[in-house]
């Protein structure tokens, strides 16, 4: 397996707070990696740093690909979707890649098909449901055909059906990807490998199955309650 992204001693500081503290990670081609951890652990920060959107110290290198080949889907679709129509939003990336008009249109069509929203081209994003917004947000990155996908909380705040549909979309993407989430069910279905972040530090790394069955490890990292409340009434 060929390494696509190498992260060495990555540190990020927000004013006084240390958000990431000495992260080392190698992402190989074709791998699907889950990043789990409690609120404020540094999951989103890690994705932003990989995409080069924030200042960091340490080294992130991309052997074999360029940073522009990395696609990032933000947690909040109202941030991701800023154009007046779905078409313009999905076309935004491909146009910036200097593709021809025909290619852009094909990309938009394919991407919307892939997330199951064909025919939504003319819709304004503010009239979409939360689940639809999340899917269009994914389409805006799909249309750029990146080699590596970074997903920030792709299923947070969705109803069970939308969650299932998003999980299915992520399964259908046959590319290297990192998924930052609290949704343990999602990573158990989609990813092979999982890392645990807590307090900006890498706490554990291993096969998803091993990590998810290690209740003690999960509990130590606020991902699993120590005691089990069965019923309160």
């Amino acid at each position: 397996m060929e390494a696509l992204i190498k992260i060495e001693n990555l540190c990020v500081k927000y004013e006084e707070k240390v958000a990431l503290d000495g992260i080392d990670l190698i992402i190989n081609e074709g791998e699907k990696i889950g990043i789990i951890g409690p609120n404020g652990a540094g999951k989103s920060t890690l994705l932003l740093a990989i995409k080069g959107l924030i200042k960091f110290t340490g080294k992130i290198s991309f052997p074999g690909i360029r940073r522009s080949d990395v696609g990032l889907v933000f947690q909040n679709p109202d941030i991701q979707l800023f154009m007046p129509t779905v078409f313009d939003d999905v076309a935004f990336g491909p146009i910036n890649q200097n593709l021809t008009e025909t290619e852009v249109k094909v990309r938009v069509k394919e991407s919307l098909e892939k997330v199951g929203l064909s025919g939504f081209e003319k819709r304004p994003p503010h009239h979409l449901s939360e689940g639809e917004k999340k899917k269009v947000a994914i389409a805006t990155v799909l249309s750029m055909k990146p080699s590596v996908y970074l997903f920030d909380e792709p299923t947070t705040g969705l109803d069970p059906l939308s969650k299932y549909e998003i999980t299915k979309i992520l399964c259908s993407i046959d590319r290297t990807m990192l998924i930052a989430t609290h949704d343990l069910e999602l990573i158990s279905k989609v990813t092979d490998r999982t890392i645990i972040l807590n307090d900006g530090k890498l706490m554990a790394e291993g096969y998803t199955q091993d990590i998810l069955t290690n209740k003690e490890l999960l509990a130590r990292n606020k991902l699993y309650p120590l005691e089990q409340l069965l019923k309160c009434r």
């Binding site: 995409k51 933000f74 800023f82 935004f92 146009i95």
Partner: peptide, 23 residues
Amino acid sequence: RGEQIFQSMKARGYNGTIKTLNN
């Protein structure tokens, strides 16, 4: 929000002008 949108635009290749297709 402006700051975050800027990041999200940057992530998709924005470099100072918004281009759209006019069909």
